[in-house]
Amino acid sequence: MSPAPTTATLPFDIAGHLGDPAELGNPDDLVGPAEATRVLRLDPLPEEVLQRAEPGPRGPAQWRRVGLWQFALTQTIPYDDHGDPDEEIGSTEAGRIIHRRPEKLPRGLLDLATPQHDTSGRFVRRVWTRATVWHYALTQLAVGATVLDGRLYLDRAGVAALAGVTIGHVDKWIKAADTINFPARHHGRWYDAQDIQQWRADQVDAQHPAPITTSGDDPNELLTKTQIVVDLYGYTNPNAINNMPLWQRLLEANSPEHNVDDTPRGRRWPRHVAVELRNNPLPRGRTPGSTARNRVIDTSGDPDDELSAAQVARAFGYSHVSSLPPAVLAAADTVTYTSEGKVKARRWKRGTIHRLASTLGAAD
């Protein structure tokens, strides 16, 4: 999971009850004074907040969480949310709502106006409904977080605050949106907070997947990328892993003799290779190939010789089989399994070690 959210930069606290960073606040929750104080970061609560309280099962001092968020936005944008949403208003009232002089109204708001004309067709004034001005304030003037139709939305800065990353990191997610299934934008520049939270949870699941086995399947069956990513790993898009270390490790483990041609579409992997890489993720901070890269590897001997795991470990300069990197384990030429589907033994041809030496390290 990402670091704890740094939501102090947002106009109100978006976390769930008692500030649990793993849980977004439910807009429909009824909360008491202590939680209202935490959400608004105001102590004591101002008179206007007290006036917005509604009767609840535990006493009169109760607020809908979404109502607290909306109040916070009136103070930070700022704007005035009082009045009939369908009432038509002119430039003076529109300016008062968003704290601007009538002659200084933003171009974006002017573009939303309905022009009124007299009987001769001469322009008289611009009019808006209050709801139109409120929507403009909430989508164009809010920063970090906003509330639209009772739902919480975040801009790029808000997403960064929720995820505990930099805005630049969020921009990378947005750029790769089609590949990593990053949530779509709404109302121009806003992302549904619940969609972001769910996407983050899905990313964590992808990094810590449930183990898969080859039980009942031929472990040496050659699979395409689509068969591996969609059928074996369970993603909906074959390109879903393109920005993950897992894809780089699959590329490193690819053997030319398994491919049908030299094009990307011609790549093939034995089923057991795909399973090994998925079930043995790299430790945090390790990059694909880093465990064996730049090691001195023994490539002497007949390429057709078969080697045990212990012999391969010695060839790579490791003192124990457990030190072999996943890319080497996945490149085993033959793998035998127990009746429970667990790996019993692996063997490599020395020629495979020669090939790995050229991609993972420097040969003698």
Results as ranks from 00 to 15, higher is better:
residue 15 A to C: 13
residue 315 A to C: 01
residue 272 H to L: 00
residue 293 R to A: 10
residue 61 A to R: 15
residue 293 R to I: 10
residue 238 P to K: 07
residue 191 Y to T: 00
residue 62 Q to A: 15
residue 334 T to E: 12
residue 193 A to C: 10
residue 333 D to H: 13
residue 358 S to Q: 12
residue 88 E to F: 08
residue 32 G to F: 12
residue 254 N to A: 04
residue 40 L to T: 10
residue 362 A to Y: 07
residue 161 A to I: 09
residue 108 G to Y: 08
residue 10 L to H: 03
residue 210 A to T: 13
residue 308 S to V: 02
residue 285 G to P: 07
residue 227 Q to D: 13
residue 130 R to A: 06
residue 120 S to A: 14
residue 143 V to M: 11
residue 71 F to W: 15
residue 77 I to K: 06
residue 139 T to L: 02
residue 73 L to V: 06
residue 241 I to P: 05
residue 69 W to C: 09
residue 14 I to Q: 02
residue 114 T to Y: 06
residue 210 A to N: 11
residue 236 T to E: 08
residue 118 D to K: 10
residue 156 R to A: 13
residue 258 H to V: 00
residue 239 N to K: 05
residue 202 D to P: 04
residue 161 A to M: 09
residue 248 Q to W: 10
residue 176 A to T: 12
residue 173 W to K: 05
residue 304 D to Y: 03
residue 320 H to N: 14
residue 46 P to I: 11
residue 110 L to R: 14
residue 116 Q to H: 07
residue 123 F to G: 04
residue 172 K to D: 12
residue 228 I to S: 04
residue 63 W to T: 07
residue 38 R to K: 02
residue 103 E to T: 12
residue 191 Y to P: 02
residue 170 V to Q: 02
residue 232 L to N: 02
residue 82 H to A: 13
residue 55 P to I: 12
residue 150 G to L: 00
residue 259 N to I: 02
residue 220 N to Y: 00
residue 32 G to K: 05
residue 18 L to A: 14
residue 66 V to H: 12
residue 298 D to L: 07
residue 304 D to L: 10
residue 22 A to D: 11
residue 46 P to G: 09
residue 20 D to R: 15
residue 114 T to N: 08
residue 66 V to K: 09
residue 251 L to M: 06
residue 288 P to S: 07
residue 41 R to V: 05
residue 308 S to Y: 03
residue 291 T to I: 08
residue 8 A to M: 04
residue 342 K to N: 14
residue 279 N to S: 11
residue 147 V to H: 00
residue 262 D to A: 03
residue 63 W to E: 12
residue 260 V to T: 15
residue 361 G to W: 00
residue 143 V to R: 15
residue 227 Q to P: 00
residue 106 P to E: 09
residue 233 Y to H: 03
residue 71 F to G: 06
residue 41 R to N: 08
residue 344 K to Q: 15
residue 70 Q to F: 01
residue 257 E to D: 12
residue 271 R to I: 00
residue 267 R to V: 01
residue 329 L to K: 04
residue 219 P to G: 04
residue 29 D to Q: 13
residue 286 R to F: 11
residue 163 A to E: 11
residue 233 Y to K: 11
residue 88 E to H: 09
residue 339 S to L: 11
residue 270 P to S: 02
residue 286 R to M: 12
residue 165 V to M: 07
residue 44 P to M: 06
residue 243 N to S: 08
residue 287 T to N: 12
residue 351 G to C: 04
residue 17 H to R: 13
residue 37 T to I: 05
residue 352 T to V: 03
residue 334 T to V: 13
residue 134 W to M: 03
residue 32 G to Q: 10
residue 341 G to K: 11
residue 225 K to N: 03
residue 343 V to S: 08
residue 318 Y to W: 05
residue 113 A to H: 02
residue 322 S to R: 15
residue 221 E to F: 01
residue 310 A to C: 01
residue 194 Q to L: 01
residue 129 T to W: 01
residue 45 L to A: 05
residue 353 I to Q: 01
residue 14 I to F: 07
residue 265 R to G: 13
residue 142 A to Q: 06
residue 103 E to W: 10
residue 96 R to H: 13
residue 235 Y to K: 02
residue 309 A to T: 14
residue 101 R to W: 09
residue 266 G to H: 05
residue 121 G to Y: 06
residue 54 E to G: 09
residue 164 G to N: 08
residue 341 G to C: 10
residue 216 G to C: 09
residue 344 K to V: 07
residue 29 D to W: 08
residue 182 F to M: 09
residue 293 R to C: 05
residue 362 A to C: 05
residue 232 L to R: 04
residue 315 A to Y: 00
residue 234 G to Q: 03
residue 314 R to W: 01
residue 318 Y to Q: 04
residue 151 R to N: 04
residue 250 L to M: 15
